[in-house]
Design a protein around this nucleic acid. Structure first.
Lengths: 286, 286
DNA sequence: GTTCCGCATGAATCGATAG
DNA sequence: ACTATCGATTCATGCGGAA
């Protein structure tokens, strides 16, 4: 089966109109936050954010399948000493558009931006708002199961301290393999709090979220050959992960340099054939 | 200096009116959630929650000192497959009342309520909404500093393995003191995500939150002899912690059996004298 | 092949300074 | 007075070079 990767240069408010009704299984996106990324985006004023976003979310509602899910990564900025309320207002307005506000996941960023202020600590979480079109939607919970609670830690604690310290390599080699076998038998469902560090800027492409974040939601809400859309593609993290996971993907980006970067980085089919031994289609670019 | 502990039986909407303007340093409370605790609070309907709460928050605004803080522990319930929006609406309405929505802390509940649903994971976080009266408020950040990241681990790793394993008692006695000195110099400020397990319900009164939660905010926003108010006292966790920390406290509770329980459990002054060797006043009950 | 240390780098926020 | 820009603050992370 061919997997397509469709990259579109343009404003998603316009480009979304060319996408069919009820054709997308998962929309995962992180729109530019108000006043952030000024250089690449226009730097939307916090007070204008809702009216800027609503026409786009209306189109997203149209293109999403009834069984599909929209996951919106967003966080309000501090404005004049207060958290701005545009995200709250956005949720209320999107419900009026017809969206169901199913859940709010928390992304806990362990390595948040440093800094010190007299009246505030560092902000180390972001919202992952889950919206749906219908009450019944596709969710594949088993795909994101995790090793159970403190199980591993407890087992390790029971080993003598000497064993732990004297030969650390054990844990990473043969001994570790045993552990991972046991782990498979003791998996639990995750919660709505996701712990993930942001990727550090040492690599060239500094993405705003780590690949593991879209990967988690793609696993949870789609299966292979489903359609994933990111209307604010940016550095293309969501799209690249979707392609790697054999999901059809559509990415829209208004900034040409971002678009070109993703276009170049999108792996040609040959690489996938070598890496995975599976058959992939050549990426479709426009 | 005498520390008072004032317990009031009644509806906080009424009883708050007897409290002086600008007299409270910290309001920390967890109001009955919509539809929860039906027996004691009549089970406020989600759709009526905001209008039920607003008159009370108006009085809280009046009694809070300009330098004071209101921390509201709340989480919206699932209603008809969606997260209900009453918390969002409450924030917007409270801002119209004059409150500043300074920050939203996340309480990550490590051991959240178990359960499995087809379209939803376990809910393991709650909101801790920080409201203020003025942009400038009292905040004692140093009081809640935490050991810095992997610093301790790295330093410990540098010690010879033998020292770590051969004589553990060292770490806990003289040797340990050196370490804790270093730690004091290498503390970091916390973030706005608070990791805390809920207390297991072994004790009779199943408290809504662990003592460490109000303790953290009492440390952060008050000093000794300041005034702490909990208008929805419930099992009295906030009040008991405040008293232990030498803060004056006022607790209001509408349910008589809750009230009686806290009244009986509030430690008499003699116990505190023995425990701490400091002078405490006899608790004032009304 | 390891492990270790040094270093640059952020979806940030405040307060002061400048227009 | 109100907005725009800038410096100072701070810490988890992962890369590269060194031992």
């Amino acid at each position: 089966m061919e997997i397509s990767n469709n990259l579109i240069l343009g404003d998603c408010g316009e480009e979304l109109k060319n996408i069919d009704d009820n054709s997308i299984d998962l929309i995962f996106t992180s729109p530019p936050y108000a006043d952030a990324r000024k250089k690449t985006y226009g730097g939307i004023q916090p007070d204008k954010y809702v009216e800027w976003f609503l026409p786009k979310s209306k189109e997203m509602l149209r293109v999403l399948k009834p069984t599909g899910t929209f996951v919106l990564n967003i966080k309000e900025r501090v404005s004049n000493g207060e958290r701005h309320t545009y995200v709250l207002e956005l949720i209320l307005k999107m419900r009026e558009q017809g969206w169901l506000w199913t859940e709010e996941f928390i992304w806990h960023k362990k390595n948040s931006y440093p800094g010190k202020w007299p009246n505030r600590f560092r902000d180390s979480w972001e919202r992952l708002l889950q919206f749906n079109k219908e009450k019944k939607f596709n969710m594949y919970q088993e795909e994101v199961m995790v090793p159970m609670g403190d199980w591993a830690k407890n087992r390790l604690r029971n080993l003598s301290k000497t064993d732990q310290t004297r030969d650390e390599s054990r844990v990473q080699s043969g001994f570790g393999k045993n552990i991972s076998n046991w782990l498979n038998r003791d998996m639990a469902y995750p919660t709505n709090v996701i712990h993930m560090a942001t990727e550090c800027g040492n690599r060239n492409h500094s993405a705003v979220f780590p690949e593991a974040l879209p990967e988690w939601f793609i696993k949870l809400f789609t299966k292979e050959e489903d359609y994933v859309l990111d209307p604010f593609m940016g550095s293309g993290t969501t799209i690249k992960v979707a392609q790697r996971m054999r999901r059809n993907s559509i990415g829209i980006e208004i900034d040409e340099s971002y678009f070109d970067m993703v276009y170049k980085q999108t792996a040609p089919a040959e690489l996938f054939l070598l890496d995975k031994g599976k058959q992939y289609a050549t990426s479709q670019h426009r």
